[in-house]
C-alpha cells in the first residue's frame, strides 16, 4: 500500500513534550515540511527560544542552537554572518520575542538580517505557567492578570507583524493562524515564502502564527481553537503586512 502521509524527514522521530491540543506540533511540522520541500535541511541552522519551544533544538533534524530568553535574533545574526549560505531561522514565542526580546527582533528586522523568524503568538507565557504576555488580549485572565488584563494598568497588546512592517528592513512579514485546516494551509504557504525569500537573499522575514494554549487558557483544545477565531482574529488580523515582491507591499 502506498504511503500518502508521513513524518517530514526534517522532523526528528521522537515524542515531543507539548501539551495535548497545543499547536506547536503543527507549526513544527509546517517548518519541517518546508525544509523537506525546499531541501535545505542540510544547510539549516535553527535557533530555539526560551519558553515552551525551548526543547525545539531536539525536534528539528538540522543543526540547532539554544538561545537565552529573547536573544534568538541576535544569536541568529551571529550564525548568519558566519554561515551566509546557511538557512538560519529562529522559533520564538510571544513572551520571548515581544517582551524581553523586543530590541533584538526590532533591530534584526531593521538591519534586514537575512534570517527567518517564526513567531508563535498564543498571548500567554506557557512554560512558566500562564502569566500575562505582551500579546495577552484586553480582559483576558492569566496568572498575573487574575482580574483580566486592565489596559489602564497593564497596557495594550503589541501587534508585532504590523509594528515590524513599518520598517524598511524586512522583505516579508505575514500573520497566519493554525486554528483551522484552510488556515494551516495558508500558514504553510507563508512559511515557505519566508524561507524562499531568505534563500534568495531578499532580507528579513517573519511569520507570526496565532496559536493556542489550551492548558493555560483553561480550555479544551477545540474551545481553544474557537477562541483564536473569536477573540484573537479581530485583534490580530491575518494577512501579508509586507512583501517586497508585491507591488503594493501592503496588507492584502
Amino acid at each position: 500500500m502506498a504511503k500518502v502521509f508521513a513524518r517530514p524527514e526534517s522532523l526528528v522521530d521522537m515524542q515531543n513534550h507539548y501539551c495535548p491540543g497545543c499547536t506547536h506540533g503543527i507549526i513544527h511540522r509546517l517548518i519541517a515540511e518546508v525544509m523537506d520541500e525546499l531541501k535545505f535541511a542540510d544547510r539549516a541552522i535553527g535557533v530555539a527560544p526560551v519558553g515552551c519551544a525551548v526543547l525545539g533544538y531536539m525536534y528539528f533534524a538540522c543543526d540547532m542552537q539554544e538561545a537565552a530568553h529573547g536573544r534568538a535574533p541576535a544569536v541568529a545574526t551571529g550564525i548568519k554572518r558566519v554561515v551566509p549560505d546557511g538557512v538560519v531561522f529562529t522559533y520564538q514565542g510571544d513572551g520571548d520575542l515581544a517582551s524581553i526580546g523586543c530590541a533584538e527582533i526590532v533591530h534584526a528586522a531593521a538591519r534586514g538580517e537575512n534570517i527567518t523568524t517564526i513567531f508563535v503568538n498564543n498571548g500567554i507565557y506557557g512554560m512558566t505557567g500562564g502569566q500575562m504576555a505582551p500579546t495577552t488580549l484586553p480582559g483576558d485572565k492569566t496568572s498575573t492578570s487574575p482580574y483580566g488584563r486592565d489596559t489602564h494598568k497593564q497596557g495594550f497588546p503589541i501587534r508585532v507583524a504590523e509594528m515590524l512592517a513599518t520598517l524598511d528592513g524586512p522583505a516579508y512579514i505575514a500573520r497566519v493562524s493554525v486554528h483551522s485546516v484552510p488556515n494551516i494551509v495558508r500558514a504553510r504557504r507563508a512559511i515557505k515564502k519566508a524561507f524562499e525569500y531568505q534563500i534568495a537573499g531578499k532580507g528579513f522575514t517573519l511569520v507570526e502564527v496565532l496559536s493556542t494554549c489550551p492548558t493555560n487558557w483553561g480550555l479544551t483544545p477545540l474551545e481553544a481553537l474557537d477562541k483564536v477565531a473569536k477573540d484573537m482574529l479581530p485583534y490580530y488580523p491575518l494577512g501579508e503586512y509586507k512583501d517586497v515582491e508585491s507591488e503594493a507591499g501592503a496588507k492584502k
Binding site: A74, V75, T77, G78, I79, K80
Partner: peptide, 26 residues
C-alpha cells in the same frame, strides 16, 4: 570580516554566541 554595531551589549554578546557556535573566531 564582519563588524556589526549591535543594538545593545546584550545583543552583541548573543551575536558572539551565535558566531562562536558556528565555529568562528569572534
Amino acid at each position: 570580516g564582519t563588524f556589526l554595531q549591535a543594538e545593545s551589549e546584550v545583543a552583541a554578546i548573543n551575536m558572539v554566541y551565535g558566531a562562536a557556535g558556528a565555529g568562528a573566531r569572534v
